[in-house]
């Protein structure tokens, strides 16, 4: 079977200190995957090195059987909301349109066709009324949805999302979950850095437990176990057993 994401022996070091050590990860297509692990486990670095934003010391990444460099148009990235300056002088529609710049190519300015596509993506996240809004006036949840719309407009096959649920309200969380399910229905593969362990079994099909090394990965039902969670989080999770026994 061809994996949507196939990472082998990925190692990333920062000043000689390993941040990710010998990571293997195979994700079949059409799967919602959660990457969980404590702070400093390397979750963001895993996404960034997969996308070539951080240079790995070793390892290979294949997306649908080809190196990432040949698959850029099929991969969309939703960075952490806090990674940009939301006081930047631009509006919502413009940010979403940025998702089309790769297809648009050099020097060409977005035209009506691009605007229509961006508006459609905004409608999918329930933000069509905010198209002309300055991005400095958005709430945290709205910012997140704008970022998601920017990824949607790319119409990729594989999505990487870095903490899309971080600090969003219940309405936005619901909207994002619906969106993830819709993407899965359309055969897309979504890889999400996630913090809320409680919602992992409800939202995701597969899970990767990460703490510099890969502790475990696979279907949530098999791998999201007390033992694996303890191995990932150390002794710090007294709530782990309650969590795992409470799951469906």
């Amino acid at each position: 079977m061809e994996y949507a994401i196939d990472i082998r022996d990925l190692t990333v070091a920062y000043r000689e200190k390993p941040v990710l050590w010998d990571i293997d990860l195979q994700v079949p297509p059409g799967v919602l995957l959660a990457i969980v692990g404590p702070n400093g486990a390397g979750k963001t670095t895993l996404i960034k090195s997969t996308l070539g934003l951080v240079k790995p010391a070793a390892g290979s990444v294949l997306i649908h059987g080809k190196p990432y460099a040949d698959q850029r148009v099929n991969v969309a990235y939703v960075p952490q909301r806090g990674s940009v300056d939301w006081d930047f002088p631009t509006n919502v529609l413009d940010v979403v349109t940025m998702g089309l710049y790769g297809k648009l190519g050099w020097f060409k300015q977005p035209a009506k066709k691009e605007k229509v596509a961006a508006l459609k993506a905004l409608a999918q996240v329930g933000m069509e009324d905010f198209a002309d809004r300055q991005i400095s006036q958005l709430s945290g949840g709205q910012q997140q949805r704008v970022f998601l719309a920017r990824a949607l407009v790319q119409d990729a096959r594989v999505y990487f999302m870095d903490e899309p649920f971080q600090g969003v309200d219940a309405t936005t969380e619901r909207a994002i979950v619906d969106l993830l399910r819709d993407l899965r229905k359309r055969g897309k593969t979504v890889c999400v850095v996630h913090h809320d362990l409680q919602t992992v079994p409800e939202y995701f099909d597969e899970v990767m437990l990460l703490n510099v090394r890969r502790i475990a990965s696979g279907p949530v039902g098999e791998q999201f176990t007390e033992e694996n969670l303890r191995a990932t989080y150390g002794g710090r999770v007294a709530f782990v057993s309650a969590l795992v026994s409470g799951k469906k």
């Binding site: 960034k48 850029r72 990235y77 930047f88 710049y101 020097f107 060409k108 977005p110």
Partner: peptide
Amino acid sequence: KEFKVLSFDPDFFQTL
């Protein structure tokens, strides 16, 4: 347009 995205979100720009 390139300078705009470069200033707003360079990481995302690189993934494009």
